[in-house]
Simulated assay, not measured.
Amino acid sequence: MAIVNNDFHEILTGRHSVRRFDPSVKISRDEMKEMLEETITAPSACNLQAWKFVVVDTDEGREKLHKYFMKFNFPQVDKSSAVVLFFGNTLAYKKYSQLWHSMYEAKKVTKEAMEAALNTFMPLYEKADQQMLVADSMVDTSLAAMQFMLIAREHGYDTNAMAGYDATKAALTMGLDPKQYIPVMAIAIGKHDPNAEDEITTSRYPLSELVDFE
């Protein structure tokens, strides 16, 4: 494990968007897989896990991103160690039965619990319209994306969440079916360039403007 920080409060409050990355910092694919293994412990609706990740860490991959990203995100695309694309998978339910059967075979759930879950949730997704499938997958994938950014801090890295791209081209450009895979977010990951100017320190709205108690 490449964990360098187990202080959750520092991970949470120390995370901020970095736009100037140190191009000399490279994250191995083994460590990236470690971080994504941690990422997929994120919660999801009905444990559907309706997400897919594409890790862009080659020059060829970055060229693809240049085709549909806005130019103001090119510094992150070009200088970060990698850009992880988070897509919602609207057809994740098609593997749902297989998932529950594997849980049953591993004795994680009883047969009754498996059948109850499949009989309850599968019909909902099989009959769902595209709007519901997209919404569900975007919520699931957003949770995973936030978790990934915190995990990156745990491993000593910085991130920048990006949505400045042509979403209609994202899946096709990366060789995915655009009807099945919905772009949710792109996250650049690496380390802040120590020679770059300081990043902007943002402020938050007062909690009193955001919270009601009933």
Rank of each mutant, 00 (worst) to 15 (best):
S137Q: 09
D212M: 07
M70R: 13
V56E: 02
Q131L: 10
A163H: 05
G88N: 13
K111L: 09
A186Q: 02
Q130P: 00
E60P: 04
D129Y: 00
M132Y: 03
M32Q: 10
H9E: 11
Q180N: 13
F8M: 11
L36R: 02
I187E: 02
P194I: 00
E10N: 12
D193C: 06
T168K: 12
I189E: 00
V84N: 06
N119P: 01
T201H: 10
F21Q: 03
F72E: 09
A116M: 05
D177P: 02
S208T: 14
K127S: 13
A163S: 09
N119G: 13
E197Q: 15
P43W: 12
T202G: 01
A144Q: 08
F148W: 08
A196Q: 05
S97K: 15
V84G: 05
T120E: 15
T159D: 02
Y68E: 06
W51I: 06
L118R: 09
L143E: 04
S142R: 07
N89K: 09
E126K: 15
L99V: 01
K127E: 14
H155R: 12
H16E: 07
D193A: 09
L65T: 03
Y104Q: 13
F21G: 03
K179H: 13
K191A: 00
W51R: 07
H9A: 09
A2V: 05
M103K: 12
P206D: 15
F74W: 08
L172R: 12
G61Y: 11
S81T: 10
D193E: 08
V139F: 09
V55G: 01
E199P: 10
D57S: 11
I189C: 13
E63Y: 05
V4P: 04
D129C: 08
A2T: 04
N5S: 13
F121A: 07
M185P: 00
F121V: 12
I189W: 00
M174W: 01
E38C: 11
D212R: 14
M174F: 15
V18M: 02
S17L: 04
A144K: 08
G175R: 02
L85P: 01
H101L: 15
P43E: 14
D177E: 09
A167I: 08
K95T: 03
K33Y: 07
T39L: 03
E154H: 08
E209K: 03
A45P: 02
V211W: 05
Y93S: 14
H155P: 04
A2W: 01
P178I: 07
